[in-house]
Amino acid sequence: MLESATAPVSARHAAAPGKAPLLAVRDLEAWYGESHVLHGVTFDVGEGEVVTLLGRNGAGKTTTLKSIIGIMGRRKGSIAYDGTETIGLASRNIARLGIGYVPEERGIFASLSVYENLTLPPQIKPGGMPVDQIYELFPNLKERSGSQGTKLSGGEQQMLAIGRILRTGAKLLLLDEPTEGLAPVIVQQIGRTIERLKSEGYTIILVEQNFRFAQTVADRHYVVEQGRVIDMIPNAELDANIDKLHGYLGV
């Protein structure tokens, strides 16, 4: 195997040993205008893994996802996807490498129907899910395919936001708080969806406030605090570390 171009990282930031990570984030910094919010974020995600970013409000989780997909105005450091350095690329070219993004505010378009929203993102790689299969996953979307996108309930909008990136052939999914503000039964449905996507080989970065939910779907958890990744907890060790985690999250 070729030597990785990226610097070695401490073990607590590394993915499964022996295999190059699908996504390698190194010393990532990012700014909103003059305001410096990420101060060196470092973590790895292995292919087929589900990892979460946990942390208090304002820790920098959303900003980390925005930096990965390339919509932060100013960012530096290194983000390598499947061996390709993306830090200097425009977001449309990053997406085309095979990354799908579900923003925290869901980003459903009011002037598009549900079907138009679903089919808006262009196919970027072969192997995307056909629309029929997405409808199978989220039957509500099929029933309401002709409605205006923003007329859907919050849960349905979340399903639409996830469904529309499954069509594109993206292999790495960035999900920003997909369960935020949703009823428990919908949270469960989204949990089942994430499990199914994992079993189909998708790689997922999940931003969550609700670590009880995160625990049901994730392999590993990264803790974000003040613009840095400060810890990594394997899912199996989450219960043993629960006090530490409470401390991090302030619950």
Partner: peptide, 20 residues
């Protein structure tokens, strides 16, 4: 649809891989 979507939120449309 691209035009309507980009009128609402060009950044997100671009993040889907569209050449806005």
């Amino acid at each position: 649809a691209y035009l309507r979507a980009a009128t609402e939120n060009p950044t997100l449309v671009q993040a889907f891989g569209v050449n806005v």
